[in-house]
Write a protein that binds this DNA or RNA. Structure first.
Lengths: 355, 355
DNA sequence: GTGAAAGCGCTAACAG
DNA sequence: CTGTTAGCGCTTTCAC
């Protein structure tokens, strides 16, 4: 193993000089810097992480706490995690992957052992049991997601309320007056992650402002679940001309069901989604959507936490502005009215197919 | 910060005693052990990771290298990563998340800095450029996936050849004689990750053994891509009665298209998939499938690497046996023959819908 | 069964 | 601008 002392000997300087060449914390003459760097390269020296952490009290590691549930938002989670890891590297940090399994104990363990310098929490719930431990440590931390009480904490998230409003704006602009919202599974609302409620608020408020009728129904992501929800919606509100979906898993079933019912998208009915761009773009009808900006959230979280580590403290809540991408699933209401006042009856044939 | 010395003082013993209580490397009288443990608990002591790493030459960290591409197999990747993290914890290890961006340099960096004790590589390609660096270091490592040359390396993967054979067995058992395989995107074959080819070998060999006709076509995961591939297959082999899909993204489009064409699953045509159980179970028709055992792969990789760290060296290649789950998408050929000798023509209506 | 003490490799005063 | 040196907190001989 090559140590700093080896490099110093090879370059004919003291070990502190080598250390300072590495850290840049004091000025070094061009010639010695050059010699030292040459020695480092030829010997293939890498500073020992443990020794550095012990001496400097900083590990250059950021802990990323991911949820244990592997069933929800997985693509988004992975995208965030990878964005966190790559952004962290550009700032000289590595990322420690901690699962939610340990819960609050993980926060204490990581802090007590000085394994990491800071922490990023994903999938934060409104009443997150990791937050008390976090607040107590006073550690640099950034949450991805918004808890109920954000005092003393930094958070990043999509502005879901604005996202909801944006959807309504888009549909209203196309002349739609009666819309339905296919929401997350009931379990999501029960877990109180907050984002689903915030979206709903945005949807409701803007609908009221613009005088649209809006119906919201939670919905399981399964094919059968979507079928049931869809049937229920059409029963309660036969005049619905547009759907807003906030449930990644529901988009494909919804499109398939509409097709089966001979309701053409977007001619007979408009559909839009709040979901990752990939999901929207690869749907059977490319969906007009508001994206969940996973990468930006990851990147931002790291930059925020690094800023804190450098002393610029700023406990702020940042809500990223939503961005709408118009694809092929939404159209002006006129089109639908021209094709048929009421959608054609479902052929008996289809009823026999598995739902 | 609470140090080991603090604990020693509190318990009225020497620091080495505390250390040995923690490591269990020498026998301690019941009474002192008790006192020490009590002190640890009341003071809330956590050993300092950096100091421990420096003194013991072991960081208790396993590096997990994930691919940078976020577009493929994301759910599987995440499932593996989480399984790795949780399993590692049960063995006293934490997991460092390293992205593929750095390539071979990452291997050298992690090793040189002694940041981790071992390494797990995901998404290994046949000619992986990280392998030379890995072999050179002689570091404990386990690959998830199978490179072309496995000498001196430990690998875990699904036995994709057996998985292919298992699919053919199942369909042959149901009386199918002419099958089609909808494969991964051409890019996957070009990247030479190996698993797609291995599956194909298994499919081909078993088909030959059992005297089935088999047609394979690569396929983009998009709706349009699947539509094109499907059309091509039916053109070349009108008599096809069953499909095997190895492309997560293709399953939903395929089912939607078949429904549109009035080919009922499984009455007119059987469909099976090689994909994660979740995907198979949530399809519009729950799919008979061979699962990619993400969790087991992650768990196994950690256990293998931990065994190596404990001196039990064993450079072995482990191919996990595939497991078939019968769901609702496959049926005996008889059924199809009874319903209609040739599938009904596609209604003109459907052709107008977006593909 | 327990203590004392010598490092592990690096950083950061302190001294020139 | 550079060198000397005292720890950082823990593990592990060596000694009793």
């Amino acid at each position: 193993m090559v140590t700093l002392a080896d490099v110093a000997k090879h370059a004919g300087v003291s070990s502190s000089t080598v250390s300072y060449v590495l850290s840049g914390k004091r000025s070094i003459s061009a010639s010695t810097r050059e010699r030292v760097e040459h020695s480092i390269a030829t010997l293939g020296y890498h500073p020992n992480a443990g020794a550095r952490a012990l001496a400097s009290n900083r590990s250059n590691i950021i802990a990323l706490m991911v949820p244990l549930r592997t069933d929800m938002y997985v693509p988004v989670m992975m995208e965030i995690a990878i964005a966190v890891a790559t952004t962290a590297r550009t700032h000289g940090y590595d990322v420690l992957l901690v699962t939610g399994e340990e819960g609050p104990a993980a926060v204490r363990r990581i802090e007590g052992s000085a394994l990491a310098d800071a922490m990023i929490l994903m999938d934060v719930e409104l009443q997150d049991d990791r937050l008390p431990a976090l607040r107590q440590t006073g550690w640099p931390a950034v949450l991805i997601g918004l808890p109920a009480d954000t005092t003393g904490l930094s958070c990043v998230d999509l502005d879901f309320a604005a996202a909801g409003a944006l959807c309504v704006d888009h549909l209203a602009g196309l002349g739609h007056r009666e819309i339905a919202v296919i929401g997350e599974a009931p379990a999501v609302y029960e877990r109180r992650t907050g984002f689903a409620e915030r979206t709903l608020t945005g949807l409701r408020d803007r609908s009221r402002e613009l005088g649209l009728r809006m119906l919201h129904r939670p919905c399981e992501g399964s094919y059968a679940g979507v079928a049931a929800t869809l049937a229920r919606i059409y029963e309660e509100r036969p005049g619905v001309t547009a759907f807003i979906v906030q449930n990644e898993a529901a988009t494909d079933p919804l499109l398939a069901l509409l097709r089966q019912q001979r309701r053409a998208v977007p001619e007979d009915v408009s559909v839009m989604a709040i979901c990752p761009d990939q999901v929207a773009a690869h749907a059977s009808v490319p969906l007009t959507s508001v994206a969940v900006p996973a990468q930006e959230m990851g990147r931002y979280a790291v930059e925020q936490v690094v800023a804190k580590l450098k002393g610029r403290r700023s406990d702020e809540v940042v809500l990223l502005p939503p961005e709408l991408t118009v694809r092929e699933s939404t159209a002006a209401l006129g089109t639908a009215a021209q094709r048929s006042a009421s959608p054609p009856p479902v052929p008996g044939n289809d009823a026999a197919l598995p739902a």
